[in-house]
Design a protein around this nucleic acid. Structure first.
Length: 581
RNA sequence: GGGCUUGUGGCUUAGCCAGGAUAGAGCGCCGGGCUUCUAACCCGGAUGUCGAGGGUUCGAAUCCCUCCAGGCCCGCCA
């Protein structure tokens, strides 16, 4: 064993440990972080103590000595020394070794603390934060029902669904909503197409694909017969006026498309709690009420059309809310929708495409002017095809269904090569999970602000840094535990591979915390992959089943904690934690 | 034209908001490793003017300015 016998590691102490032992409500790592932050604030006399993860140097580290150096006019290294001495003397820091390395303050958790924290990680549900009372509403996907979800839309779905899973994991009561744009111009075009063109579905055609076919054909027809555009306008006026026959036509078309969406969303592992129909905000009078309130605002202008002058907030463009023919514009209904959300929830989050940046910013300032709760909006950049941007109207897109079919087929080939002995239904089931893992992970690992180009070659490749790679690490851990049989948990971390793995496992609860405060789901994706990396290295170098006695029990416990943490992380990413693959 | 945003080894990407310890990864490339708990794996190696230029700072991939390139937006569409 390459055991690092740091004398500090062998020292056992209670205090902190007793207070941490009260159950899985108190995750040790989060407590340790807060404890160090608190102590550091006191000795440094600063509110901002620049505490962060220590990387290779330590469990936590701080560069606060630099900022104090300015104030105290002393060298940072000297200040770090003084701070370290003051911290080391504190009763509440006895489980944490403080070291001043040059100007840096490094904090090392005692092995005892790491081991205690690790034992929490073997419990089902590890990483779940204590329940909170703040109600959150999260809107995602909300694609127009004029054609199937494509590889651009599902960036929204996967970002939103992952975030939703993180919020639930973080203890928040959450409602996930899909805002159904059921009265837009696109839908009017679909309705017009259904009633004027050959519109019967093809045998076995999915509703959303059927609607797209009609929508594409209708657009082509309208281009060659611009006179028909007036028919579309009339449909829009009739639906806003509440004409029952027209309302029914719109609702039927939207429902057909939405039913198709629901199949795709379910294949993606995404679930909405509520579908909110845009037209409801016309019918219940909310849109009129918002417009009424707006008409009294200083920024309001009425020159036939009703609009807001938001130039004081830096917006040059008119924010038009009602057309001169009296019908409302999308933005007006959106204000009504967000007012409703803001009054019923404590935190309102929207996942929207980058094309909504301007309108989203206008929405936010208007909500503030109205004295209503403004949403937090996560914008993601576009996914384009190698030949250019996608367009439902032009029929230029790769649908999510097609992507899932292709990736599943590819995954089945792979599973069949590796596990030829498994019966086909089982291979198919594994392939389905592997395909979803590949698709979801590939999307969630990239930060939303990067625009991407869809590439079949990349989509069909399950190499490292992929969802299947993480699933594989989990399956390996399961395999060891299956073969091991019963054992009593016991932990005594010996070597660097074990310690590195354990130190990483105990950070998981804080990762969940960070994702929901910063709204950055890709941090969880990176965490899961790194955890798999560390486990694979441990797996390679440290035999488990071939050892015996306490070493075997300890390593089995570590494998159990890894398996559990990987499983919790994967589930929070919406990826199946496969037991075998 | 104006606004927003992105630019990190051949390719993809983390780090940037809250500036500090040799800029992390993966693919691809080169060289190793399956009689050993699933090789969808592991180990080693080469590859970086962090788009360009200026500025602030003890210190800049990170903050500020200018420029260049890509994406998005600028409708009485949604």
């Amino acid at each position: 064993m390459t055991s690092k016998r740091d004398p500090f590691f062998t020292q056992h102490s209670e205090g902190l440990l007793l207070s941490c032992d009260t159950g899985r409500d108190t995750e040790m790592y989060c407590m340790l972080f807060q404890l160090v932050e608190h102590a550091l604030r006191e000795v440094a006399g600063l509110e901002e103590v620049l505490l962060g993860e220590g990387g290779e140097h330590a469990d936590l580290s701080s560069t606060v000595a630099f900022s104090l150096a300015k104030v105290k006019r002393a060298p940072p290294a000297k200040i770090a020394q003084e701070l370290a001495a003051a911290l080391a003397a504190r009763e509440d820091m006895k489980n944490i070794r403080v070291e001043a390395l040059g100007p840096y303050l490094n904090f090392h958790f005692s092995r005892d603390v790491v081991e205690k924290a690790l034992l929490q990680a073997t419990n089902p549900g590890y990483g779940t934060r204590p329940p909170r009372s703040e109600r959150v509403v999260l809107e995602h996907t909300s694609a127009n029902p004029n054609g199937p979800l494509h590889v651009g839309h599902i960036r929204n779905t996967i970002l939103g669904d992952t975030l939703a899973r993180c919020f639930r994991k973080a203890g928040y009561p959450l409602e996930v909503q899909y805002y159904v744009n059921d009265m837009g111009r696109q839908i009017a075009i679909v309705v017009w197409g259904f009633s004027t063109l050959e519109s019967a579905p093809h045998p076995g055609e999915k509703g959303d694909h059927h609607v797209a076919r009609i929508y594409i054909a209708a657009n082509r027809e309208l281009e060659s017969n611009p006179g028909c555009v007036a028919d579309v306008d009339r449909l829009m006026q009739r639906v806003e006026g509440g004409d029952p026959a027209t309302v029914r036509l719109f609702r039927d078309a939207v429902t057909e498309c939405l039913d198709g969406f629901k199949v795709t969303l379910s294949r993606l592992g995404a679930k909405h709690d509520r579908f909110v129909w845009e037209s409801d905000f016309i019918r219940n009078g909310d849109t009129e009420r918002v417009l009424g309130k707006i008409s009294h605002m200083q920024e309001c202008r009425d020159d036939g059309k009703l609009w807001l002058d938001l130039s004081s907030a830096g917006f040059e463009k008119e924010y038009v809310l009602r057309r001169s023919d009296g019908t409302s514009v999308y933005a007006a209904r959106d204000l009504a929708y967000h007012t409703w959300k803001g009054r019923n929830f404590d935190r309102v989050i929207d996942v929207l495409g980058a094309d909504h940046k301007l309108i989203g910013a206008q929405l936010i300032v208007t909500m503030r002017l109205l004295g209503e709760r403004a949403p937090e909006i996560i914008h993601f950049e576009f996914v384009s095809l190698p030949e250019g941007s996608m367009s439902t109207r032009a029929g230029k897109f790769v649908s999510a269904d097609e992507l899932l079919d292709e990736v599943s087929g590819r995954a089945l080939e792979e599973v069949t090569i590796r596990r030829p002995e498994l019966p086909e239904p089982e291979r198919r089931e594994i392939a389905r999970s592997v395909a979803l893992a590949a698709v979801r992970y590939d999307i969630v690992r990239i930060s939303p602000e990067k625009s991407t180009v869809f590439d079949w070659k990349v989509a069909l490749d399950f190499e490292r840094q992929s969802g299947p790679y993480i699933q594989y690490a989990h399956a390996r851990a399961c395999s060891i535990l299956d073969k091991a049989g019963e054992f009593d948990e016991y932990i005594a971390l010996e070597n660097e591979h074990e310690l590195a793995l354990a130190r990483y496992i105990i950070r998981f609860p804080r990762v969940i915390e960070t994702v929901v405060t910063e709204l950055k789901p890709h941090l969880l994706a990176a965490y899961a992959r790194e955890l798999a990396d560390l486990f694979n290295a441990f797996y390679h170098f440290e035999p488990v089943l071939k050892t015996d006695g306490l070493v075997r029990r300890s390593r089995l416990t570590l494998v159990k904690a890894t398996r559990n943490t990987l499983s919790e992380a994967l589930q929070t990413l919406g990826i199946d934690a496969l037991r075998t693959m």
